[in-house]
Amino acid sequence: MQQKSAGLAAVLSFFITGLGQIYNGQIFKGIFLILLQLLNGALTVILIGYLFLPIVWLYGVINAYRAAERINRRNQRRFD
């Protein structure tokens, strides 16, 4: 398995929540986050989306970064 750039994963999720997870190989998690953000966008009509939109966005960025680091550590142990 190849190394993942934690920075790139975070940047991808910064611009589109879930894209960093897809880059890391977590396809279903990434698609779920994208759909969740679409729902949150729709919920801004009744104001609750304004609360959850930034929370899910920040979770996506941090999770993508940490997942890439975990993948890299796991790959490094295999080659040691």
Rank of each mutant, 00 (worst) to 15 (best):
I34Y: 10
G18M: 08
R70H: 12
A64I: 07
S5F: 01
Y23E: 07
R73P: 07
I48V: 02
I22S: 10
S5E: 00
T44N: 08
I71P: 09
F52T: 10
G41P: 03
Q76W: 02
R74T: 05
R78C: 06
L43V: 00
L51Y: 01
Q37N: 08
G18E: 11
R73A: 09
L36Y: 14
R66W: 13
F15S: 04
I34S: 13
N40I: 01
N72C: 04
L8S: 06
N63E: 15
L38Y: 12
I48K: 01
Q2L: 10
A68G: 00
I62S: 08
F32N: 04
F15N: 07
G25L: 05
Q21N: 13
L36C: 15
I55V: 04
A64G: 11
A9I: 04
Q37M: 13
E69D: 09
L19K: 08
I62P: 04
Y50P: 00
Y65I: 03
A10W: 06
A67V: 10
L8N: 06
Q3G: 01
R74W: 13
R70N: 10
I71E: 14
A42E: 03
Y50E: 03
N75R: 03
L19W: 12
F28L: 15
A68H: 02
N40K: 07
I16R: 13
G49A: 01
R73I: 03
Q21D: 05
Y65W: 14
G30A: 11
Y50V: 01
N75K: 01
Q26T: 15
L51Q: 00
Q3S: 07
D80I: 08
V56P: 12
I71K: 09
I22M: 15
R77M: 07
A10I: 04
F79N: 06
Y23C: 06
Y23N: 04
I55K: 01
A6M: 02
L36H: 11
I62L: 15
L35I: 10
I62H: 13
A10N: 08
L47A: 00
I46A: 02
V45T: 07
V61Y: 13
A68E: 02
L51I: 03
Q3F: 10
F14H: 12
V45E: 05
